[in-house]
Design a protein around this nucleic acid. Structure first.
Length: 489
RNA sequence: GGUCCUGUGGCCGAGUGGCUAGGCAAGGCUCUGCAAAAGCUUCUACAGCAGUUCGAAUCUGCUCGGGACCUCCA
């Protein structure tokens, strides 16, 4: 493998060459979901983005430890019910145990990510599994003088921290301006400054998820779990920290402050942020009501969806834009991607039938190099896919005998698709594998009858079969090699 | 209000000082009993105005749109 990865680091606002701290090992932490609801496909986009990074690093031969947390302690909901645990609230509403809610949505999260063919992380730690470590980190921060206690809660002292360090360096904020612009929220009277954030929160008696601590019964603060679990599994300073753009501030900023306050080191060398999926130009979000879940997407059961979409078409759609740009969802755009994706899949199938020639009229080495250049340039998947479309055209021309290729060139084409299409982009071709053997058998019989009718020029019978199947949403496609069928999309 | 991002052909989306992606759609063609499918092929855009430059969609300024964060959020 040639070349090396350049990646945009939010911390420096520059594309930087990726150099691991301890090669060949790479530590990567990605902020995972809060499991109090089904994730929507905007959430899925971020995990797909980091899946591509993970897959690239594995392909490049790194030994990657990929840690992605499950947030199973709820965070604050909003001003109205400040201090209430999201998961506890949901549990009361549905009359379930909090951990039952956690388990249910963790399961569905795993199911969804599997649908989109993302690789599981190496470690998937939970916040509730690391309460002791979180308490320990709070004690260290207190001991170092960067936090204060109040009524059984512990708050991070941003003002104190700002005297020595730059709070806001990741998101480009200035402490004084932040103070000037912060809205005054209810329930924050315990804090010395509105910028201060909770490390430990005192629990009301009605609160369900709570633990004993040196400061009383309570639960850990919003940002602490990521600091604790990334440190525990990846060390005080590790290579990559990722997450959605919306976590940059305050979440990731707080993580940096916590690590510096506790360990006097910044947690990550490279900070990488994926951008949002938008709908009509607006961020997809649960609260705006413009979100839909993976299940709704693949079943087409949402008013905004004109039809059902295959998970791989959706993954492909997402990879056709750069991870750091917003991507606007629309039925039109998704259907365009769906067709483009099928074009690539078709070419991959044809590639298996190409026969080698003595000499070649194509340049496969250049293709391979361009693909590496694209993925290594800040994971430019849209450019990479454009090269794969060029390769698909080449394959079609080879199939039509308008170009010729040597055995080696055909092998290179195959390895390009294996490496980039399957391994790095994480795409799969088997989209119709839900047909049972029995259905396939029946369809083969029908198609054989039709074939015989056509051979006998009995077109009224062959057209009758085609038209009747169409009524059942089964489409016949004739080709030189015979007829194929598929369900109408 | 503050900070930042963004505006590309009918649609989606890369690129980023000169070589001007790619997909979808549309037109043409090939294949074909017909149709569909599939393939080949054509189409030249960068919000507006001003400036820098031999040269700008790309840099600078202004104007006008859109968005994100500042509050849980992927």
């Amino acid at each position: 493998m040639k070349g090396s990865l350049f990646i945009f680091n939010t911390l420096t606002r520059k594309k930087e060459k990726f150099i691991p701290i301890n090669p060949p090992f790479v530590g990567m932490y990605v902020c995972g979901p809060t499991v109090y609801n089904d994730v929507h496909i905007g959430n899925v986009r971020t995990f797909i983005s980091f899946d591509v990074l993970y897959r690239y690093l594995l392909h490049a031969g790194y030994k990657v430890r990929y840690v992605r947390n499950i947030t199973d302690v709820g965070h604050l909901v909003n001003d109205a019910d400040h201090g209430e645990d999201k998961i506890a609230k949901k549990a009361r509403l549905e009359n379930l145990e909090p951990m039952e809610v956690v388990q249910q949505y963790t399961n569905s999260f795993h199911f969804v990510l599997q649908l989109f063919n993302t690789l599981p992380p190496s470690i998937e730690p939970t916040a509730t599994g690391h309460i002791i470590e979180q308490i320990e980190m709070i004690e260290t921060i207190l001991k170092n003088g960067y936090a204060y206690t109040k009524n059984g809660s512990v708050y991070f002292d941003v003002e104190k921290y700002s005297q020595m360090h730059h709070y806001g360096k990741l998101s480009g904020r200035i402490t004084e301006e932040l103070i000037a612009n912060t809205r005054s929220l209810e329930g924050q009277e315990e804090k010395k400054s509105p910028l201060d954030f909770a490390l430990w929160k005192n629990a009301e008696p009605s609160h369900i998820m709570k633990w004993k601590s040196p400061w009383g019964i309570g639960f850990p603060g919003w940002h602490l779990e990521c600091s604790v679990m990334s440190t525990k599994y990846l060390g005080e300073t590790f290579d990559i920290h990722g997450g959605g753009m919306d976590l940059k501030f305050p979440h990731h900023e707080c993580e940096i402050a916590q690590s510096v306050a506790a360990e006097n080191t910044e947690p990550a060398k490279y900070w990488i942020h994926g951008n949002m999926l938008t709908v009509n130009g607006q961020k997809m979000s649960k609260s705006l009501g413009n979100s839909f879940t993976a299940t709704q997407l693949i079943n087409g059961t949402h008013p905004m969806l004109e039809k059902a979409y295959e998970p791989m078409s959706v993954r492909f759609f997402m990879l056709q834009s750069h991870y750091s740009s917003t991507l606007d969802f629309s039925n039109e755009a998704l259907q365009a991607s769906e067709k483009g994706f099928r074009r690539l899949v078709n070419a991959i199938t044809l590639l298996e039938t190409i026969q080698p020639s003595e000499s070649g009229s194509i340049n496969t080495d250049e293709l391979e190099k361009k693909c590496y250049d694209a993925i290594q340039d800040d994971l430019n998947t849209p450019i990479l896919i454009a090269h794969l479309f060029d390769a698909a055209k080449t394959i079609n021309l080879l199939y039509d005998k308008k170009e010729i290729a040597t055995k080696e060139q055909i092998e290179t084409l195959k390895s390009v698709f294996k490496n980039f299409f399957f391994d790095i982009l994480g795409l799969q071709t088997e989209t119709d594998n839900n047909n049972s053997d029995k259905t396939n058998g029946i369809m083969n019989i029908i198609l054989n009858i039709r074939k015989k009718a056509r051979e006998n020029k009995d077109f009224s019978t062959s057209d009758f079969i085609r038209d009747e199947l169409k009524k059942l949403h089964i489409i016949i496609k004739d080709s030189k090699e015979g007829a194929l069928w598929e369900y109408e999309k």
